[in-house]
Amino acid sequence: MSRQERVDQGSREPLKSRAEYPYHWDADDFVSRRELLRLAVLTSGALFAATVAIAVRGAFGNSSSGSRTLIANASDVPAGSVKYFDYPKKGDQAMLINVPGLGFVAYSQKCTHLSCAVRYERDKDRLYCPCHNGVYSVTTGDPTAGPPQRRLPQILLERDGDRIFARKEQA
């Protein structure tokens, strides 16, 4: 039974009201296939615009950021230890790790899954995100287990004697 028929049944004077207001709700609710197609094409245009916006941002945006900043003295970070610091801006947490047998590496602490803080676990030789059990390689920053799909942004280092500088962050 259509909505119009239901209204007519419930009304005391259906014929009079229909005569005064010949308004068909069913017809008003009707969405034709052509209208649906137009809506689909509009949505398609919006998706295309969003993809172009990402491409433009990717082409003209800078994939690396940060300036040369002193982050630690090498003697303060013995092999197997980690020093946490802010880079490239204050509040952007990062970590400098002295990996035994490899030397110094630095990564952003922001997990590429949902931005939780990643930490270094020396006994398991891994970078671990406790939020969803994401695991990264200490040597490369690549994800090795859990939900993360992208590697941790690496911070390029420069050593000047005992001093270690962060040069830039690279996605």
């Binding site: 197609l37 689909a40 094409v41 398609s44 245009g45 998706l47 295309f48 969003a50 993809t51 172009v52 990402i54 491409a55 941002r57 990717g58 082409a59 994939s63 590429t112 799909q149 992208r150 590697r151 942004p153 690279q170 996605a171």
Partner: peptide, 30 residues
């Protein structure tokens, strides 16, 4: 669009224009 976003966030920007072009072809076809 999701692939483009993933590539953008991963920092490899080379293939983004190809994805935009494919999306544009679909839109023009529509």
């Amino acid at each position: 669009l999701t692939v483009a976003l993933d590539i953008y966030l991963a920092g490899a920007r080379g293939q983004l224009w190809v994805l935009a072009l494919l999306s544009g072809v679909v839109f023009v076809g529509g």
